[in-house]
Design a protein around this nucleic acid. Structure first.
Length: 263
DNA sequence: ATGCCGTATGATATACGA
């Protein structure tokens, strides 16, 4: 089974890019973030044409929004609000097999990495704390589960183009990395991509629009992740970032991430 | 410190992204 996760940065604007990705990678499950559209205006028929039979959308006007499309039967879809807000940042499905697939869009966190000076950063940190508590309380790490999404944090030194220069940049500050590692440790989440791309090797999934950083200077960050619980570790067969999509016409600033699991 | 570019919106400027 192949799962692909992609921050699409407007699904309506890039629906043809999604179709191209599906044609090239043939995912069984496709998870999108930043769809930036309401449920009512979501282009669901395009996904049916791509071969997906089951759909789950958690949209929002203008901002955020996440969706899951599957060729395998979805038994239940769930949508959850976080931090007492109405944001659409988390949708998850239970497949007929019992496997859960969680799709997240963690808050970006604004510019200033200080919870007292920056309300957006406080929201990001609170979101991580809630994630930690929620998974411990609501799920068992001994059950097979997959978590994907734009987590907006690059945890390893090799997950950014310059560890030293980004230590005080939101997405790579020590307090965010600690928060993300806390989410992982509490539920025994395993970073599937780093099983196949060694931690010593630089790996990015996002390159800013604001500088001409791609592909020339390659000033990227690995903000997009795929995690699995321990029962799935031995079933992992591959994982990678599909970097070339960042070079397509009118690209998203994020590249897709994919994992193959023997299920 | 700022701009760089891109997206969305009761939009011809503004908020947001990270």
């Amino acid at each position: 089974m192949r799962i692909v996760s992609w921050n699409i940065n407007s699904v309506r604007l890039r629906i043809e890019s999604v179709a191209r990705l599906v044609a090239e990678l043939s995912p069984d499950i496709l998870c999108l973030q930043e769809i930036k559209v309401t449920d009512a205006a979501y282009p669901q028929s395009a996904f049916t044409e791509m071969g997906f039979t089951d759909h789950a959308v958690f949209g929002q006007k203008g901002y955020h929004g996440v969706s899951i499309h599957s060729r395998l039967p979805i038994s239940r879809a769930h949508r959850k609000h976080w931090c007492g807000r109405e944001d659409s940042r988390h949708i998850w499905v239970t497949l007929a097999s019992g496997l859960e697939v969680h799709n997240f869009y963690v808050p970006a966190g604004g510019d200033v990495p200080n919870v007292e000076e920056n309300e957006k950063f406080a929201h990001k940190m609170a979101f991580l704390d809630e994630m930690t508590e929620w998974f411990v309380k609501n799920h068992k790490s001994t059950d097979p589960a997959i978590l994907v999404g734009d987590l907006n944090i690059a945890p390893l030194e090799t997950d950014v183009w310059s560890h030293k220069q980004l230590l005080k940049e939101v997405s790579h500050t020590p307090v965010e990395v600690d928060g993300l590692n806390g989410v992982m440790a509490a539920h025994k989440w395993i970073d599937a991509v780093r099983i196949f791309v060694p931690p010593e090797e630089p790996l990015y999934s996002w390159w800013s629009y604001r500088n001409r950083t791609w592909p020339g200077s390659n000033r990227g960050r690995r903000l997009d992740h795929i995690w699995v619980t321990p029962p799935l570790e031995d079933k992992l067969r591959g994982a990678s970032v599909f970097t070339e999509a960042r070079g397509w016409e009118k690209p998203s600033d994020h590249a897709p991430v994919l994992v193959d699991i023997d299920l």
